[in-house]
Design a protein around this nucleic acid. Structure first.
Length: 299
RNA sequence: GGUGCCAUAGCUCAGUUGGUAGAGCAAAGGACUGAAAAUCCUUGUGUCCCUAGUUCGAUUCUUGGUGGCACCA
């Protein structure tokens, strides 16, 4: 029998966890994390990882398994997720991946080109240059010389894009666009994409309520304990950055809370945009368990 | 009760020496290949509080209201 990976995607706060538990139970499947922040050990409340009860009901993989200090990335995620799936498919016919990180999910479903990992020293130096007077022009000029094909399409206002592309050119000695082919890798299993969505207003209400709940669960304390890790990418995350600003005395707690709500809404919107562009997704309301299970069974 | 100041986009405000107006935030749309909960791009018509006047023309000046704020009684 062919093995199947069921992807459950959707924006933050839409209700993916509940759906995934039900579907996993029904299919006798395990759940993988498809979220770029729930993988970190140190973060629990602010990333809304599934509860202990949830995890006890269905086996979960790739949740909170690396340290925020480990500088994890998409490439490692692709590899780790495939390893877990390889193992699971020896015993089960179905597996679920649940999350809201479009890039991570795409890497798992379609593969990602073998680009070199980041060179953090080089990156830091480039970003410093970017923000200095005339630095942007210097970097753009170098990129234009190294990769004329990319030049036409790259977002020249986006320092992270430009510096990353340049980084790859320097590290490999080849144009970035030559290595990043976007070739789709056929996986040795079937992929079924389920998208969850609800009315915008309803989603925003849920987000606001969830942020309040996070505070009552101790988000403030969690963020405070993570102050020593604030420079790591893992902590460049909604719910933590705003509180770091509060600890610095730049904003009030009330403002931080409002900003977390707002930034979570912004994040949810970006996710909506990403997933909306994926034509392979079949959409359901988060409460429509029967609909989802029906759909999967009739495939 | 008196005097002064204010009333412009969902919010905070700028501005028009009289020719019907624009920033920030919010909101909406979009991009996305090892930082992706990141990073970046696009989008601003609104009885310019109401009324009467002056004027070719008033959101702008004048009269009278209404509401808010401050000070004096």
């Amino acid at each position: 029998m062919t093995k199947r990976l069921i992807v459950i995607a959707g924006s933050t706060g839409v209700g993916k966890t509940d759906m995934s538990i039900k579907v996993a139970n029904h299919l006798n499947a395990h759940i993988l994390c498809g979220d770029s922040r729930q993988i970190y050990k140190e973060m629990t409340i602010g990333t809304a990882v599934p509860t202990k009860d949830d995890m006890a009901t269905v086996p979960h993989h790739l949740f909170q398994f690396v340290s925020a200090k480990d500088r994890y990335n998409v490439g490692r995620y692709e590899r780790d997720a495939l390893l877990v799936l390889d193992d699971l498919f020896k015993r089960y016919d179905n597996a679920l991946v649940v999350g809201g990180s479009g890039l991570y999910l795409d890497a798992l479903c379609k593969g990602i080109d073998p680009l070199p990992e980041a060179d953090h020293a080089m990156r830091e130096e480039m970003l410093l240059l970017w923000h200095s007077l005339g630095g942007r022009e210097i970097l753009l000029k170098e990129l234009q010389e190294r990769d004329s094909e990319l030049w036409d399409t790259i977002d020249k206002d986006n320092p992270i894009r430009v510096c990353r592309a340049l980084e790859v050119c320097r590290l490999t000695g080849e144009p970035f666009s030559k290595i990043r082919r976007g070739k789709i890798i056929k996986r040795p299993f079937e992929i079924v994409k389920i998208g969850l969505r609800r009315e915008r207003e309803e989603l925003y209400d849920r987000i606001n309520t969830r942020v309040d709940l996070m505070f009552s669960e101790g988000l403030l304390e969690e963020a405070h304990s993570l102050l020593p890790l604030r420079e790591y990418n893992a902590l460049q995350t909604v719910g933590y950055r705003e509180l770091f600003d509060y600890f610095d005395g730049n904003i009030t707690l009330e403002t931080a809370k409002e900003l977390i709500k707002r930034n979570t809404r912004h994040y949810a919107k970006r996710q909506t945009t990403w997933f909306g562009g994926d034509k392979e997704i079949s959409w359901f309301h988060p409460n429509d368990y029967d609909g989802v299970i029906d759909y999967i069974e009739k495939l």
